[in-house]
Amino acid sequence: MTGSAPRGPRITRRLIRSCIALAAAISLTVGVAACGLQSGGALPLQVKPGSITVQPDLDGQTVTVGSKDFTEQVILGYILGFSLSAAGANVRDLTNIQGSNSARDAMAAGQVDVTIEYTGTGWINYLGNEQPIPDPTKQFEAVRDEDLKKNGIVWVNPAPMDNTYALAVNQENAQKTGVSTLSEYAALVKKDPAAATTCVETEFRSRQDGFPGMAAKYGFDPAQVQMQILQTGIIYQAIANGNCVFGEVFTTDGRIKALNLNVLEDDKQFFPHYNAAVSMRQDVDEQFPSIAKITAPVMAKLTSEEITELNRQVDVEGREPADVARDWLVKNGFVTV
């Protein structure tokens, strides 16, 4: 290891993010609207305009940016936050909210103004649909139209990146089990459940676009599976070490390549498309129309390859999400420092 000094600021920033997320969760629990509290802090880094310039409707206005609590979401939250800051907004940082439903509730409660959300999550989790739409563009359009009509939530600027769920296995266990598709995984569960130990995180275990829905699609009883519940970040190493034969992964996670894991083919195309898109309440969109304008070119640059590399820099190299996000925006000319 090359010195421990640089780790201090990284730990401090992560502690701050955790405290902010905890404050948000507490405030939502006790009733934010009733007490009028606001959560969130300043962005950890400063940026200046680049190709994103100061916008009259955003200049000096406070906008709260939220995200969920896993690496990619925090990176996307900072990409969004720095973009708005370059446009002149006073950005409040509420990244790192625990869980999809909590992040959505924070927006509904007015704690969060804008996030980057996934189309599959919107369609299945928030809108309650059971069948995904195979075409990514039509999936986005369906989420956009239904969420606006039912909930007053605006979706704009879908990115090319598609971070869907998958199961993965290490090379040794792939050879040992002969499993390369989810159909073969289902057959193994039925034949020899002990050979198909599977690690998942809590949310995937209960989501209809997660393990229960996958089991129904592929025709096996999820209760047969010998399952371990782990934190998302631990699962990848547990798969690599063989502590779990199979495990839940996100397809844009940089650790898949770094740990040489095999992703099982979703041969029945169960998992929805999870294209990232900017999501905000209708009142926020109407007050700040420039949010859609300035984020359009940023989102267009976010391919699966690009976000996988950014995730890798955090999860493999140990860099801070805010540093990674800002560097990417600078490299692409969106902001300056």
Score class of each variant (00 low, 15 high):
residue 231 Q to G: 15
residue 231 Q to V: 08
residue 232 T to I: 09
residue 234 I to L: 10
residue 234 I to D: 11
residue 234 I to E: 10
residue 235 I to V: 11
residue 237 Q to S: 03
residue 238 A to N: 15
residue 239 I to L: 04
residue 239 I to K: 07
residue 243 N to P: 05
residue 244 C to D: 11
residue 244 C to N: 08
residue 246 F to E: 13
residue 247 G to C: 09
residue 250 F to C: 04
residue 252 T to N: 14
residue 253 D to C: 02
residue 253 D to H: 10
residue 254 G to H: 06
residue 254 G to E: 07
residue 254 G to S: 09
residue 255 R to N: 12
residue 256 I to F: 04
residue 256 I to Y: 02
residue 257 K to P: 00
residue 258 A to M: 01
residue 258 A to P: 02
residue 259 L to H: 04
residue 259 L to Y: 02
residue 260 N to G: 10
residue 260 N to T: 12
residue 261 L to S: 05
residue 263 V to I: 15
residue 264 L to Q: 08
residue 264 L to S: 08
residue 267 D to A: 14
residue 268 K to L: 15
residue 270 F to Y: 14
residue 271 F to M: 06
residue 273 H to M: 02
residue 275 N to K: 14
residue 276 A to R: 13
residue 276 A to K: 14
residue 277 A to Q: 07
residue 277 A to C: 07
residue 279 S to I: 11
residue 282 Q to N: 11
residue 283 D to F: 08
residue 283 D to I: 06
residue 284 V to E: 02
residue 285 D to T: 12
residue 285 D to P: 00
residue 287 Q to P: 03
residue 288 F to I: 12
residue 288 F to R: 13
residue 290 S to P: 06
residue 290 S to L: 10
residue 290 S to G: 09
residue 290 S to M: 08
residue 291 I to T: 06
residue 292 A to M: 06
residue 294 I to L: 12
residue 294 I to P: 09
residue 296 A to R: 14
residue 297 P to W: 05
residue 297 P to K: 07
residue 298 V to I: 05
residue 299 M to R: 10
residue 299 M to A: 14
residue 301 K to I: 01
residue 302 L to G: 02
residue 302 L to T: 02
residue 304 S to R: 11
residue 304 S to F: 05
residue 306 E to G: 02
residue 306 E to L: 11
residue 306 E to Q: 13
residue 307 I to T: 07
residue 308 T to A: 11
residue 308 T to D: 05
residue 309 E to Q: 04
residue 309 E to G: 02
residue 309 E to I: 04
residue 309 E to C: 00
residue 310 L to M: 15
residue 313 Q to H: 14
residue 315 D to G: 05
residue 316 V to Q: 12
residue 317 E to I: 05
residue 318 G to K: 13
residue 318 G to N: 06
residue 319 R to A: 11
residue 319 R to T: 10
residue 319 R to G: 00
residue 322 A to F: 07
